[in-house]
Design a protein around this nucleic acid. Structure first.
Lengths: 202, 202
DNA sequence: GGAAGAAGTGAACCATCATTCAGAGTTTCC
DNA sequence: GGAAACTCTGAATGATGGTTCACTTCTTCC
C-alpha cells in the first residue's frame, strides 16, 4: 500500500472533471457538436487531448454527459413550472414562456440540445429528451381536458407541436430579426401555444 | 476534330446523371446522409466511386442536388395546394393534410429533408427550404386574417409552428404506434393545425 | 481499321480526428 | 529521501471516407 488517493486528490479530480464538462458545454454551445473536437474541448479546458480519456472512456461518453447535464436542467425547470399547483392553462402558458425564454437566452445551447447535427449517441439522448418534454406538456394538456378548460384532443400531438414549434422558431434567424423584441416574440409564442391547445382567447 | 459528343451520347450522360441522383436519393432516404458514403451511393447506382466525379465536383455538390430536387418537389406540391383558389382555412387544412401525408408516405425522405444530421452544405439548403415552407403557410394565414376568418396573429410564428409541429410528429416513433392509424393521425394533426391558426372549431 | 479523345474503373492517396502509449511529472506513504 | 502508484502530456497510431489518377474501355470520325 504505497499510494492511496487522498480525499483532497479525489476532490481535485472531481473538480477537473466538472471543469472539463463545463468547458465542453461551452464549446458545444458556441460551435456545435460537429466542430467540438477532442482537441478543441481539451484546449478550452486547458488540458491535453489525452487527458480527456482519464475522465471519459470516449468522446461519445463525454458528449452524452454534456447533453444529459444540460438537457436535465431544462427538463427539471420546465417540470417544476408545469407541475406547480394551479390552473392548467395558466401553467401551460408559464411553461412555454420559461421554455422559450431560457432557449432564447442561450441560443447556442438550445440549438445544440434541440437540433444541431450530432453523433448517434447524442441523437439517441435527444430523442429521449424530446420525449420527456412532450410527456410534461401532454400531462398538462390532459389535465386541461379533464378540467373542461381545453377541448378534446390528442395531448401527445399537441405536446409534440409545442416543442416542435418552439424549436423551429429558435433554430433559424427568426428570433430577433428587424423590429421584433424578445418580449414580443415570447408573447406571440405563448399566444400561439394557447390557441394550439385550444384555450379560449383571453 | 476527331471526337464530338453525339446527341445520343449527351443523352446517355444525362440519363446516367439522373440515375445517379435518383439512386443517391433512395440511399439517403434509407440510411440517412451520414451513412450515404460516395461508395454506397456509387454501388447503388451500379458505377464506380470515381465515376461520381464525372457528374459532380464533390460529394457535397451531389448531396445539395439530391436535397434540392426532393425539397423542390415538396415545396411545389404544397404551394399548389395552398395557393389554390378558395377559403384560406380550407386551404390550410388541405395543405397540412398533403404535407403530412406525403411525409408519412416517405418517412425516410421526410426525415432526411427535415431533420436528419447532414453536412453543412445540406444544412444551409435546409434552412432555405424551411423558410420557403414557412412563407407559404404564412401567406395563407395572413389571408385568413385579412378575410376575418382567423384572429390577429403573427403569421410567421404560426407558420413556423406548423412546420415544426409536423416535423416533430414525424421524426420520432409517434407516427404509427400501437393503435393509431395514419388517417387518425392526419385528422388529429389537421385539427391541431387549425386550432393553432385560431380557426373556429367546426 | 485505327487514331484521337472521352468516360469508367478501383486501388492508392490524403486529410481528419478519435484514440493510444511511452515517458515525464506528481502525489502518497514508509 | 525514495519506491510505488498515479496523472498528465502530446506525438504516433489507426480508422474512416472523400478525392485523385494511371489505366482500361468505349465512341467518334476519317
Amino acid at each position: 500500500m504505497a499510494y492511496r488517493k487522498t480525499p483532497a486528490e479525489i476532490r481535485r479530480l472531481e473538480v477537473a472533471r466538472e471543469h472539463l464538462v463545463a468547458c465542453a458545454t461551452s464549446v458545444v454551445a458556441e460551435v456545435g457538436w460537429s466542430q467540438a473536437s477532442v482537441t478543441a474541448v481539451a484546449d478550452a479546458a486547458g488540458i491535453a487531448a489525452g487527458s480527456v480519456y482519464q475522465h471519459f472512456p470516449s468522446k461519445a461518453a463525454l458528449a452524452v454527459e454534456v447533453f444529459r447535464r444540460a438537457a436535465g436542467r431544462e427538463v427539471e425547470v420546465l417540470g417544476e413550472v408545469l407541475t406547480a399547483p394551479g390552473d392548467p392553462v395558466e401553467r401551460l402558458s408559464r411553461g412555454i414562456h420559461v421554455f422559450a425564454r431560457r432557449a432564447l437566452e442561450n441560443r447556442g445551447l438550445a440549438y445544440a440540445l434541440l437540433a444541431a447535427p450530432a453523433e448517434p449517441a447524442v441523437g439517441a439522448e435527444r430523442l429521449d429528451f424530446r420525449r420527456r418534454y412532450r410527456a410534461l406538456f401532454a400531462a398538462v394538456v390532459r389535465e386541461g381536458i379533464a378540467d373542461g378548460v381545453l377541448p378534446e384532443q390528442n395531448g401527445e400531438i399537441t405536446a409534440a407541436a409545442l416543442t416542435g414549434a418552439i424549436g423551429e422558431v429558435l433554430v433559424d434567424p427568426l428570433g430577433t430579426p428587424d423590429g421584433t423584441t424578445t418580449e414580443a416574440l415570447l408573447a406571440e409564442l405563448t399566444a400561439m401555444a394557447l390557441r394550439c391547445a385550444g384555450a379560449p382567447a383571453p
